[in-house]
């Protein structure tokens, strides 16, 4: 049965369709009914003050956080269904973290191969071959045998991207991927993200890199107080926002 929106239809253009997402911690309501719909191949930017719920929204999209209410479809699969195999569903949804969260006891190659071996059950040879290809995509094929502690922040984050990318997800969620980086290292990570976009990867990125948003984002969403206040192209949101709250926030991050 098709619903009027066409949700659940095979090969629809909507890759991620989160509707009415709410998330509360005890008395605190962090998300108050957020809709996040992402088309195939789209790069969506999430901006908003700290505590506005950007991280929580991203983490609800792969149920790393359990939404208190709402519907969540990824490529037509209902992630909130009681029968969902969430581990299987998560293969389709890559995640990149602000603090990288690389496994410090494994080298770059080991970080990328772990899920390939445990989740996709590839042989060591196949996993390493695929991991090397993926590390090449983030320009780190020479660092395969380096441990996270031996890599710069920018290199670590690119390993983090490779770890997500290796599973060939349909969408990658990035939670402030460059906020923990020294300014001179930001460019290498943004460069990789830009290349992913050119390859057609669908991404949702919580980030305040405005210059990058202008040149690469299809859409910018401004989140505040657990609701989406405004959305539009980067140009619209950054230079001619309708809402005073948006303009005020944009002023702040532009200094």
């Amino acid at each position: 049965m098709l619903n009027p929106d066409g949700a659940g239809a095979p090969a629809g253009s909507r890759l991620l369709e989160a509707r009415g997402i709410r998330k509360s911690y005890a008395a605190l309501e962090v998300l108050r009914g957020v809709d996040l719909v992402v088309e195939r191949g789209e790069l969506v930017f999430l901006i908003g003050p700290s505590g506005s719920g950007k991280s929580t929204l991203l983490r609800c999209c792969n149920r790393l956080e359990e939404p208190s209410a709402g519907t969540l479809l990824v490529d037509g699969v209902d992630l909130m269904s009681p029968r969902i195999d969430i581990n299987r569903a998560r293969r389709q949804i890559g995640m990149v973290f602000q603090g990288f969260n690389l496994y410090p006891h494994l080298d770059a190659l080991g970080n990328v191969t772990l899920a390939l071996r445990k989740v996709l059950r590839l042989s060591r040879r196949d996993a390493e071959a695929r991991a090397m290809e993926t590390l090449a995509l983030v320009h780190l094929q020479d660092k395969a045998r380096s441990y996270p502690g031996q890599l710069s922040g920018g290199q670590q984050q690119r390993v983090g991207i490779a770890r997500a990318l290796a599973l060939e997800p349909k969408i990658i969620l990035m939670d402030e991927p460059t906020s923990a980086l020294d300014p001179e290292l930001v460019g290498s990570v943004l460069g990789v993200i830009r290349e992913l976009r050119e390859r057609g990867m669908t991404m949702v990125i919580a980030s305040h890199e405005m210059g990058f948003a202008r040149s690469a984002a299809d859409r910018v969403l401004f989140l505040e107080g657990g609701v989406i206040v405004e959305q539009g192209t980067a140009e619209q949101v950054f230079t001619s926002a309708r809402e005073a709250r948006t303009r005020q926030f944009v002023q702040q991050i532009m200094h």
Binding site: L64, M95, F97, G99, N101, A164
Partner: peptide, 23 residues
């Protein structure tokens, strides 16, 4: 072990026990 370690592993589709044993 920081909570982010297990979160990273779970986000790649690893089960709770795989995450515990390998990460």
């Amino acid at each position: 072990v920081p909570a982010g370690q297990a979160e990273a592993a779970r986000s790649t589709g690893m089960t709770a026990s795989q995450t515990f044993l390998s990460v």
